[in-house]
Every structure is written in structure tokens, then in C-alpha cells.
Write a protein that binds this DNA or RNA. Structure first.
Length: 115
DNA sequence: GCAGTGACGGATA
DNA sequence: GTATCCGCCACTG
């Protein structure tokens, strides 16, 4: 459970980090899901923006965050283009053509898991 | 201060 | 199912 979500002292990107860090291995979520969980579903771009700053933080499993299509849109921001896919496959997530095949199965909804 | 841009999402055609 | 458009908020030039 994230207690800091309701803590307005933390910035938006900080809250995003908290959620992303709680994503279990072998699961993945979407920017929209996080944005929605944070009460800013209209600002899904902000989640992406937050992740942009997150790629510098080794504690943030950014590879588990993809867009609503399960597409690895941010793979280009990783150290290597294949790193994101490798990490996902390493966790049991099947990635094909830069997108998560069984995305629906591995989808991790913070609203349900953290509610 | 204005305009362009971005790891997106949803609605519409 | 694919293609476009718009909104969203923050950052950069």
C-alpha cells in the first residue's frame, strides 16, 4: 500500500516512481493506469514525462511500464534498444515486435492491487 | 510570454 | 481495426 499517494507534499513524478517500484516482477502496467491511479488520467503524458526522468533512477523498473497497447514505446530511452525487451522476457513476459503479446495477462492494475 | 514538443489516452470518423 | 484529432501539464528554446 502506498501511503504517500495522498501525500501532496510529494511531486507527481515522485508518486509515479512509488507506484512503478511496486510493480511485481513478471507484470506490467500502462501509463494511463498509473495516471488514473494518481487521479490524473487526463495527464497520461505526464506519466511518460515522469518516466523520462525515471530512466536515470536504477530503482525504477521502467521496463514494466508501457503504453495502453502494451507497446514498448520507451525502449529507445533505455541504455540499449533491446534492454527493455530482454528485461521483460527475463521476467516471463513475452514480447514480440516490441510489444507485450500477453499484455492483458500480465497487466498490473494499481487500482486493484493497491486499492 | 509564445510556440513546439513529448515513454499517452480517449473519442471520433 | 486503422487513422486522425484533441486534451492534458510541464519543459525547453
Amino acid at each position: 500500500m502506498i501511503t504517500s499517494i495522498n501525500d501532496n507534499n510529494k511531486d507527481f513524478f515522485q508518486m509515479v516512481f512509488e507506484v512503478v517500484k511496486l510493480i511485481p516482477s513478471g507484470r506490467a502496467t500502462s501509463y494511463g493506469a498509473i495516471a488514473n491511479y494518481l487521479g490524473a488520467k487526463r495527464s497520461s503524458r505526464m506519466v511518460g514525462w515522469a518516466m523520462n526522468t525515471a530512466h536515470s533512477n536504477p530503482e525504477i523498473p521502467a521496463h514494466r511500464v508501457v503504453n495502453r497497447n502494451g507497446l514498448l514505446t520507451g525502449k529507445m530511452h533505455f541504455q540499449t534498444l533491446t534492454l527493455m525487451q530482454e528485461l521483460l522476457e527475463k521476467e516471463g513476459i513475452i514480447v514480440k515486435d516490441d510489444k507485450i503479446v500477453n499484455f492483458k495477462a500480465v497487466f498490473w492494475n494499481p487500482m486493484e492491487e493497491l486499492a
